[in-house]
Structure formats: structure tokens, C-alpha cells
Design a protein around this nucleic acid. Structure first.
Length: 802
RNA sequence: GCCCUAUUGGCGGAAUUGGUAGACGCGCGCGAUUCAAAAUCGCGUUCCUUCGGGAGUGCCUGUUCGACUCAGGCAUGGGGCACCA
């Protein structure tokens, strides 16, 4: 008998796993389970969020393995990105070197947590072994028409000096730097994610994902059904096309508004100083006012009129700062009576307000859909009917068409950074072409020792390709790297093929675990990649991640742990002090995975205490036989009843609920239920049998969560008799043993608990009623009153309604 | 403004299909052990109480024999989206 010494046990067991290659996975006949946790950015060291994320993944992986699944759990590094460049500048170490050192340290940390990864499939996005395939995929997307280049207004982050995707602009500020984003025009590469907008929206329904994540994606994709409607300009052959979701309100249209960035506005500004001044003013407001929705509505008349396509009346054309160029057509029809925003604008500039829709069964105009009036032949129609009818009529006159509009824009992937994957494109005479497959990878040039990052645009040797070609100097958005790594993992050690038969075998990911902060960006891009890869016949299935688990934040003093708040807790200190098993146990015990977790030192102590108790019970004990004795005492039967029913509960909690906190609570309860005399030397043979069975269940049940101590104890306790590793199988519960001989009846009067009584099973309802009435408190309550009804739930509750 | 989500003891949380609210753990209190402390073990721990009981899951209504659980309304916290036509 010895003290529980976690660091010694954990390194012994980790060495064993390593020597045995315990977590190396290859395809076989078993049902497969691909469990993936979002790979980390190698920022330096693990934080608590990582520890929680990876422990959850490891617990599920180990449990699934014990259940007989062929489990694949890989790990890698999202290794390109800006922090490496910043570190390079401040530490005088190259981004490559900085990243490599961080990976080495963090890999050691992951191993010290006892995470069962198949390191033979490790990948790093900054390795050319990885990104050459990314460049190939870019080429395949290009050949398929999914990639294009255009000059466009971009979100420019002046601090990070790079372009940001719309998804990376939060409240008008850069998602990483927090700097006010400027609008700038640059040549950019784009991926046509919008080609898949409909499918990205539709197939959300089939996914076993948290509803809030699916809703966020739906909102982001933002599908609206409506129509394009043409308005001819007066005295001209030109026309303006508007987009509206409410063609039924068209008879209320009293003006058109165009975006300040619309071509017509820019043309007018060339000749009109007032308009020119107005456009300048709009730019200033846009840059200054982060919250666009609260910005004041500004407008200026163009002096031009449009002809209403159905009434033939003249309506004025305005420039309005609230009209977005890149949504719809950059032109809207103003219907002040039935749109809040149009109303504000019309009120301010004294524009005509015409009501054409009444709320159903009333004479009251409304913003919502209703019944049309003053709308010629459409009078009396309901909005829905009118929309269909008006679109049909416009279509036949070639004045418009019904269509679907998305909020989602194409994905701008060019970044003006050094530490990223070079975009494999070369130029000659201004003509762009994608680098041939045989020429890949286009390697990121190495930097001189101790050098900070040098942008590719300043690297002459890199720019000048052969035959007078010039290289593209932008690198990919790092979200490109992380959009397909899940598919590469199974093929990560294949340098001949990007996605081989292993990827076909393991995909899709059965369970993907990570933070909610990736609900839109990363998860949407990955879904797009998977669909595009499917259409290239490189993967099977429509979706990459079958089930998604979003783990909650780790909090300290009620706030998210973050460097800026100064409330971080270094997990390493706790691993060193208590061991990985205690940290894992604590993390899983203190909150369900999806909820936030409040870090508490004293509670960590509590988890440690339990492992010490477990150690004390099992260490030095040896299983001599698993032969079931011929007779077992009532006390023994009670323990077995508890053991077997607890095992069933645990299985259910692991399987269908990912409710690890209740798994642990149940294990502790079972542990507490062991009678003291069963543990003593004087215990009888049958008592020892029942105890041993309980120990086996406890070790097995806690193994996914605290794998080191359980495996170590297992070796000493049972391995010589049961002759298998602890994770080779999951024990079976016997439902026959789970039945108790008696039960406790709860007695209610008018639905309130008024008494309890222990009874034997098998009594009929009359006997139960009599027994219940014999309780003193019940008798007193019933006396002199009429029992109107008796409700009896078998062997649970009896309720007397008086 | 719209959408999602949460609200249960001093604290983290449990109650899985409407059927004993507070499992399990932390903390706290008392006791054992110890010269003492740490560690460990035992008992207690929702609130009120005249010790018979009574009340209680953010608030208000309702459905039901019975509501943390279902329905309608409201409040507060967290998250997402937002001149999206």
C-alpha cells in the first residue's frame, strides 16, 4: 500500500500507451467513430479552454473505444497566422521558429494531459506538405469556376494592414486588432461560396447541431425571397432595377433611393458639386459611425425622376446613405407607409406617403402583410396573393422577375501577410494563371535567421518566377487552412495524394467539438469546402461534421478567462500539482460540457480527494476470482443492485447526453454505497465478490475521464485474471440484478407529499391503499373527509384527492 | 429592433417521459484523531417553525389529481444578427 502519486503513475502509463502505440487507428470492420476537437493555434501554451475542449473529446473517444468502436482522434496545428509575425517582430525570432517551438511545448502539454491522439497523422498547416495540397485544391476550385479575381471595395484593417472578410468585421472593427475598419479598393481573389448558399442553408436542417448555431448560420446566409423590378428613367432609355421583398406595396412607392456608391451617383457627382460633397460626407459618416443602424439617415435628390412601372407616375430618385451597394441591386423603392426605414427618410425630406395595405378585417394601415387597396386590379387581395400576381404580371411585361436574394457574399481570401500559404498564381502581361500541379508547392520563402517578417511583395527573389512570370504576393486567409484539415487528417501521412481511401473511410467527422465562437466563420467555410470537394468527387457525403458539440467558456470570478482581464489560470500549474487525472475529473465534474465552467481551486481539491479515496480502496487489492458465489446476502444483493443500475445510468449519460458531470456523480454515489465491512480483511467471500464487481465497474466507468489512475489500478487489480487492457471492453449490466425487493411509496394528499412508506413489491392496489392510510399523518388528514379520487402510479406514488 | 439561450440552497450543479426538488461535489458547522496542525474519518447543512408542521425552483396567470418540467404574459443576465430593402 502506497500513497497516490499522480505524476509517477501518469508518466508510467503515458509511456506504456506510447510504447504500445495504443491510439494508432487503422480502418477495420468495426463501426468507425471519428472524433475531432478543433485544432489549436500554437500561441505558446495551452489555456483552460483548450484543456476543457480536448478533455471532452478524449473522454468521448475513450468511451467509444470501450464500446467497441474503431475510434480515430487526431490532432494538429493551425499554424499560420498573425501572432507569429507579431512575435517575430518583438522577439527577433522567425515566425517559423517561433511556431515550431510553441508546437513542441504544447504537444508536450497535450501528452501530459493523457490525451489519446493518433500522432502518426499529426499535421501543421504551415508545412508545405500540408499547404501544397491546399494550393492544389485552390487550383481545382479555379478550374471548376469557383475562384475569381476582382477589384473590390474591401474591409481594410489599418493596424494589421490586411483585408478582412465580412465575417471578420465585428461592429465595424477588425476581429483581431479591434481597429476601425476602412473601406479601400484592391484586387482580390474570391471564392464563390454564394454558389452554395441555398444548399448551405437547406442542409442545415439535417445536421445534429445545436439549434443556436444553426440559427446563426441561417441568419448569416440570410435568404430573402422577392423580386427585381425595373423603373425606367424619365426622358431616357436607362432604367434602375430595385430589389424588394414586398412587391405587394409597389403602389405605395413614392421615391427610389440609390446607394452613394452606385454608379449613377458617382456619375452625377462628376457634374454636380452638391452631390459630390454629399458622397464625401457619406464616406466620413460610414467610417465614424460604427453602429450603422443608429446612423442618421441622409439623402439628396438627384433631380432625376423614374417612371412607376405600374402607374406610369413620376417619382423622384434620391441618393440615400442607408442604401447598401452590395446587397440587392444598390437601389430600393421607397414605400414610406409600409416600411419603418422608408418612413423615417420620407418624413425627414417631406416625401409623399401613400398607404396601400390595411391590416386584415380593419381599416388600419400596417407595416406587416395585409389586404391591398388603392392598387388597381390588385385591390382586395391579400399580400401573399398580390406578391405572386404582381410578379407574374411584371414578368410578362418584362419589367421584373421574382428571385431569391442572399445576404451571404463571396469569400475574399487574399491577405497581405507573410506568414500564410502563398496563393499559387503567376502573372504575365497582367494575365493571371494558376500554377500547374507539377510546380506545387509554391513555397513560402524562408527568412534570414532572426529576421522579422518580410512581406512577399518586398521579396524580389520570390516575386520573379521563371520565364518572366511574376508571382502573386498575397497569402490565403488562414480560414482556408482550417476549412479542410478535418478531411486531410486521415491522409496526413500520404505525400502522394491529398485525400486517400483513409479519408473516405473515416469521413464524415462523427463528433466535432469546439468553441461557439466558430459558429459562423470556420463552420460555414468548412461546410462549403466539403460540398465543393464532394462535387470534385474527392469526398463522400454532403456535410463534414455530423454532430457538433460546442463547449462552454471557462470563467474565473464570473468572467471569461482572458489575458486582458488578468484572470487566467495556467492549467500547467494544476497538472503539476494534482496530476492530469484530477484536472480532467474536475473539468468534467463541475459543469456539463455545453455550459460555462467556473474555475474554483477548492473544488479541484475535492476531485483530487475522490481519486485518493479510490486509490486507497483499490491499491494493493488483487482480484483472485470472478466466480460468482452460490449465495449472496441481502447487503451484497443491495450493492449489486446499485452497481448494475448505476452502470446502466452511466452508459446512458455517456451515450446520449454527454452528461459527464452526472456520470461522475453516479460513480461517487456508488463508491459511497459500498458497506465498510466489505472492505475489511474479515469480509466474507461473497462480500469480496460483490466488492470486486463494484470496483471493476468503477474503474471501467471512470477510465475515459481519469485514464491514468484507472489503468494503473486495473493492472494491479484485475489484469492478470481478466487478461485485457482496461479500455478493451465495457462491462455489461444485468437487469435481473437491478430489481429491488421492495420500494418506497410516496403518499400524497391533493398532490402534496404527506408521507412515505416502505413496502414489498407485488401488492395489489387495495393493499397499497390500506398501507398508505395506515400512516398516522395520512389518517389524520383524511379523517372526516370524502376521498373523491385515488391516483396510483405503480410502486411510486399514491395520491388521495379530497 | 429581431433571433437564440439561461434564471433551482452560501457556491458549482442534479431531478432523462409532468410523479419524493436540492443527487454528487465545494464551502461551512460540530465531533473523532493529534501535544498541535495538515491529512483523514463520522454527523449535520433550502428557508421558516409554536417542533404539530408550513413554505419553496426569477415574477404573474393558466392547464392538471400532481408543474423546476407544459401553455400565455413579464422581468433580468448571457450570446448572435442588424439601415439586408
Amino acid at each position: 500500500m502506497s500513497e497516490y502519486n499522480p505524476s509517477e503513475i501518469e508518466s508510467t502509463i503515458q509511456k506504456l500507451w506510447n510504447d504500445e502505440n495504443r491510439f494508432k487507428s487503422t480502418p477495420d470492420e468495426r463501426e468507425k467513430f471519428y472524433c475531432l476537437s478543433m485544432f489549436p493555434y500554437p500561441s505558446g501554451k495551452l489555456h483552460m479552454g483548450h484543456v476543457r475542449n480536448y478533455t471532452i473529446g478524449d473522454v468521448i473517444s475513450r468511451y467509444k473505444k470501450m464500446q467497441g468502436f474503431n475510434v480515430f482522434q487526431p490532432m494538429g496545428w493551425d499554424a499560420f497566422g498573425l501572432p507569429a509575425e507579431n512575435a517575430a517582430i518583438s522577439n527577433k525570432v522567425s515566425p517559423a521558429e517561433w511556431t515550431k517551438q510553441n508546437i513542441e511545448y504544447m504537444k508536450g502539454q497535450l501528452n501530459s494531459l493523457g490525451l489519446g491522439y493518433d500522432w502518426s497523422k499529426e499535421l501543421r498547416t504551415c508545412d508545405s506538405d500540408y499547404y501544397k495540397w491546399e494550393q492544389l485544391l485552390f487550383k481545382k476550385f479555379y478550374d471548376k469556376g469557383l475562384v475569381y479575381k476582382k477589384k473590390s471595395m474591401v474591409n481594410w484593417d489599418p493596424v494589421d494592414e490586411t483585408v478582412l472578410a465580412n465575417e471578420q468585421v465585428i461592429d465595424g472593427k477588425g476581429w483581431r486588432s479591434g481597429a476601425q475598419v476602412e473601406i479601400k479598393e484592391i484586387d482580390q481573389w474570391f471564392i464563390k461560396i454564394t454558389d452554395y448558399a441555398d444548399e448551405l442553408l437547406e442542409s442545415l436542417d439535417e445536421l445534429d447541431w445545436p439549434e443556436n448555431v444553426k440559427t446563426m448560420q441561417r441568419n448569416w446566409i440570410g435568404k430573402s425571397e422577392g423580386a427585381h423590378i425595373d423603373f425606367k428613367l424619365e426622358n431616357s432609355n436607362e432604367k434602375l432595377t430595385i430589389f424588394s421583398t414586398r412587391p405587394d406595396t409597389i403602389f405605395g412607392a413614392s421615391f427610389l433611393a440609390i446607394s452613394p456608391q452606385h454608379k449613377l451617383a458617382i456619375d452625377l457627382a462628376k457634374e454636380n458639386i452638391e452631390i459630390s460633397n454629399f458622397l464625401e460626407k457619406c464616406k466620413e459618416v460610414k467610417a465614424a459611425e460604427a453602429d450603422m443602424a443608429k446612423a442618421e439617415k441622409l439623402g439628396i435628390p438627384t433631380g432625376l425622376d423614374a417612371i412607376h412601372p405600374l402607374t406610369g407616375k413620376k417619382i423622384p430618385i434620391w441618393i440615400g446613405n442607408f442604401v447598401l451597394l452590395d446587397y440587392g441591386t444598390g437601389v430600393v423603392m421607397g414605400v414610406p407607409a409600409h416600411d419603418q426605414r422608408d418612413f423615417e427618410f420620407a418624413s425627414k425630406y417631406n416625401l409623399v406617403i401613400t398607404q396601400v395595405i390595411n391590416k386584415e378585417n380593419t381599416e388600419l394601415p400596417c407595416l406587416e402583410k395585409g389586404i391591398l387597396f388603392d392598387s388597381n386590379k390588385y385591390d382586395g387581395m391579400h399580400s401573399e396573393e398580390a406578391i405572386t400576381s404582381i410578379i407574374k404580371d411584371l414578368q410578362s411585361k418584362e419589367l421584373g422577375e421574382g428571385l431569391v436574394q442572399f445576404r451571404l457574399r463571396d469569400w475574399g481570401i487574399s491577405r497581405q501577410r507573410y506568414w500564410g500559404c502563398p496563393i499559387p498564381v503567376v502573372y504575365k502581361d497582367g494575365e493571371a494563371s494558376v500554377v500547374e500541379e507539377s510546380e506545387l508547392p509554391v513555397k513560402l520563402p524562408e527568412l534570414p535567421e532572426g529576421s522579422g517578417p518580410i512581406p512577399l511583395s518586398q521579396n524580389e527573389a520570390f516575386i520573379n518566377s521563371k520565364d518572366g512570370y511574376k508571382r502573386e504576393t498575397d497569402t490565403f486567409d488562414t480560414f482556408m487552412d482550417s476549412s479542410w484539415y478535418y478531411a486531410r487528417f486521415p491522409s496526413a501521412d500520404n505525400d502522394k495524394d491529398v485525400l486517400d481511401e483513409n479519408s473516405r473511410y473515416w469521413l464524415p467527422v462523427d463528433l466535432y467539438i469546439g468553441g461557439i465562437e466558430h459558429a459562423i466563420l470556420h463552420l460555414l467555410y468548412s461546410r462549403f469546402f466539403h460540398k465543393a470537394l464532394r462535387d470534385l468527387d474527392m469526398v463522400d457525403g454532403d456535410e463534414p461534421f455530423k454532430k457538433l458539440l460546442t463547449q462552454g467558456m471557462v470563467l474565473k470570478d464570473g468572467a471569461k478567462m482572458s489575458k486582458s482581464k488578468g484572470n487566467t489560470v495556467d492549467p500547467q500549474a494544476y497538472i503539476d500539482k494534482y496530476g492530469a487525472d484530477t484536472v480532467r475529473l474536475y473539468m468534467m465534474f463541475t459543469s456539463p460540457p455545453e455550459q460555462s465552467l467556473e474555475w474554483s481551486e477548492s473544488s479541484v481539491e475535492g476531485s483530487f480527494r475522490f481519486l485518493k479515496k479510490l486509490w486507497k480502496l483499490v491499491d494493493g487489492r488483487k482480484l483472485e476470482s470472478i466466480q460468482e458465489p452460490s449465495s449472496i446476502s441481502d447487503e451484497g444483493k443491495n450493492l449489486r443492485q446499485k452497481s448494475h443500475s448505476t452502470l446502466q445510468k452511466i452508459q446512458n449519460d455517456y451515450d446520449s447526453r454527454y452528461s459527464f458531470n452526472t456520470v461522475i456523480a453516479a460513480i461517487m454515489e456508488l463508491f459511497n454505497a459500498i458497506p465498510d465491512n466489505f472492505k475489511e480483511d474479515s469480509a466474507t467471500e461473497e462480500e469480496v465478490f460483490c466488492l470486486n464487481e463494484t470496483i471493476i465497474f468503477i474503474l471501467k466507468a471512470i477510465h475515459p475521464i481519469a485514464p491514468h489512475i484507472s489503468e494503473y489500478l486495473w493492472q494491479g487489480f484485475a489484469q492478470n485474471i481478466l487478461n485485457e487492457n482496461i479500455d478493451s471492453s465495457w462491462p455489461k449490466f444485468d437487469s435481473k440484478l437491478m430489481e429491488a425487493s421492495g420500494f418506497q411509496l410516496v403518499v400524497q394528499i391533493n398532490g402534496k407529499v404527506r408521507g412515505k412508506i416502505s413496502l414489498d413489491k407485488g401488492l395489489d392496489q387495495k393493499e397499497i391503499e390500506e398501507a398508505a392510510k395506515s400512516i398516522e399523518n395520512i389518517r389524520n388528514n383524511i379523517e372526516g373527509k370524502e376521498i373523491r379520487k385515488v391516483i396510483y402510479i405503480k410502486e411510486k406514488i399514491i395520491n388521495f384527492v379530497l
